[in-house]
Design a protein around this nucleic acid. Structure first.
Length: 393
DNA sequence: CTTCCACAGGAACCAGCGGACC
DNA sequence: GGTCCGCTGGTTCCTGTGGAAG
């Protein structure tokens, strides 16, 4: 019989699990020295009591944006006299009111009572800065926040009003299109400086993984080949360092389950599939119901084959937009739900495509005039099995 | 060449809802 | 605790597109 001791004893592989977590910030960040220098030079004036320029940072997920900023913030905090950096994630704090109240609460501890209005926090902020202090607001995932124009306007006004001290903004986004939705005035104010974080290349990922692995694992718990493989997979996928870390963490789990003391190519290969389905599953689970239904319809039609397949050549496995809508409506009535209009359905499709769950092409030659051809991004069996418990037959 | 088909996707509008404000 | 406001997700309406049919 197994005992719990088998599962709770010291790991043969891990020395420190936290190192592979996406929140871990290493002491040295490889291949971001340049960006870190630039960041520091932009923020440095605040340490001398002058207002720092506003800054906008771009880069895909897992390119070290947040990590670099936090790294710099840590150094900054060591030297601060009359300046503070406050980090806020806009996914959680997604409105001017919430952002400002969060920031002020961090500044003046012991103000966690609820119920103050926006003007109150604004005054508090002026008060704090008015004593000659510099505040730097880091807004991560700034594209998730609403009314960002209003917030920027408020802060610009605050700077005008202040004789001493000031507020600066650092925005972080992974969507380049974020810029377009902004009011021209707040655009020019936020974009005083701009930085772009490129994706990591395979050799870079390799070095980064090497560094983390040395901290996280026991000596020789992973083969160099396994690291190379993980970097190569990640680089051809997206260059997302988080993906690489996830891959390694999964491979480690895999090796532990098999009772191995060492991670090799085989575990990384195995982990890749798991991570992939993990990610898809995560995305699918978070989807609103009707998005899921549309995806489900696409999946089951892919299995049964397109009714109009005979019309097409070359475009293998694509479905027509119309038949997917039909099937979706049918699915809805079977589940006693009312189907949304065709117009809504079309915007669901666009959403699904943006998430990479389906791919579409405009119909070209000879097929039914102007329509969209749809193809599933992953295997239908996999997709269906994820949703079968909800809609399945 | 005109009309039709089957859809794409923008714009305006509307209902419901949660939060701010008094 | 009621009122107002703005956002969200959806619908309706509309114009655009490009091959097929007449």
């Amino acid at each position: 019989m197994p005992s719990f001791g088998d599962f709770t004893g010291p790991s043969r592989i891990y020395r420190d699990r936290d190192v592979l977590s996406p929140h871990f910030i290493p002491d040295t960040l490889h291949f971001r020295e340049h960006q870190i220098r630039e960041l520091m030079s932009i923020l440095a004036p605040a340490l001398q009591g002058r207002k720092a320029r506003n800054l906008m940072i771009y880069g895909k997920t897992g390119t070290g944006k947040t990590c670099s900023v936090k790294h710099v913030a840590r150094k900054f905090e060591e030297e601060r006299q009359n300046a503070r950096i406050t980090y806020i994630n806009c996914r959680m704090y997604n409105k001017p009111y919430r952002i400002l109240s969060k920031a002020i609460k961090a500044l003046t501890n012991g103000l966690d009572k609820q119920g103050y209005g926006l003007p109150f926090y604004y005054e508090k902020m002026l008060e704090w800065c008015g004593e000659g202090r510099q505040l730097i607001l880091v807004l991560d995932e700034i594209d998730m926040a609403k009314n960002i124009d209003e917030l920027i306007y408020t802060l610009t006004r605050a700077n005008d009003e202040l004789e001493r001290g000031g507020v600066s903004l650092v925005g972080i986004s992974n969507r380049l299109t974020f810029k377009e939705g902004l009011d021209p005035r707040s655009k020019s104010s936020l974009y005083e400086r701009e930085m772009v974080f490129p994706p990591y290349t395979a050799p870079q990922l390799q070095k980064i993984l090497q560094q983390r692995v040395e901290l996280a694992f026991n000596k020789d718990a992973i083969t160099p080949g396994a690291i190379n493989l993980a970097s190569a997979y990640t680089a051809q996928e997206s260059g997302d360092a988080r993906y690489a870390l996830k891959l390694i963490a999964r491979a480690a789990e895999y090796a532990e389950e098999k009772g191995l003391g060492r991670i090799t190519d085989a575990e990384v290969k195995g982990a890749r599939e798991i991570v992939e389905t993990d990610l898809v599953k995560e995305a699918v689970d978070k989807l609103p119901e009707h998005h899921q239904l549309v995806l489900y319809a696409v999946a089951r039609l892919t299995l049964s084959g397109s009714k109009y397949a005979r019309f097409e050549e070359g475009k293998d496995g694509y479905l027509f937009s119309g038949e997917v809508y039909e099937d979706y409506s049918e699915l809805c009535s079977k589940l006693r739900k009312s189907a949304k209009t065709a117009r809504s359905y079309r915007s669901y499709l666009t959403d699904l495509e943006m998430l990479g769950l389906v791919t579409t092409v405009e119909s070209g030659k000879g097929i039914r005039g102007h329509t969209k051809l749809i193809k599933l991004g992953h295997t239908p069996q996999e997709t269906i099995s994820m949703m079968r418990h909800k809609f399945g037959e």
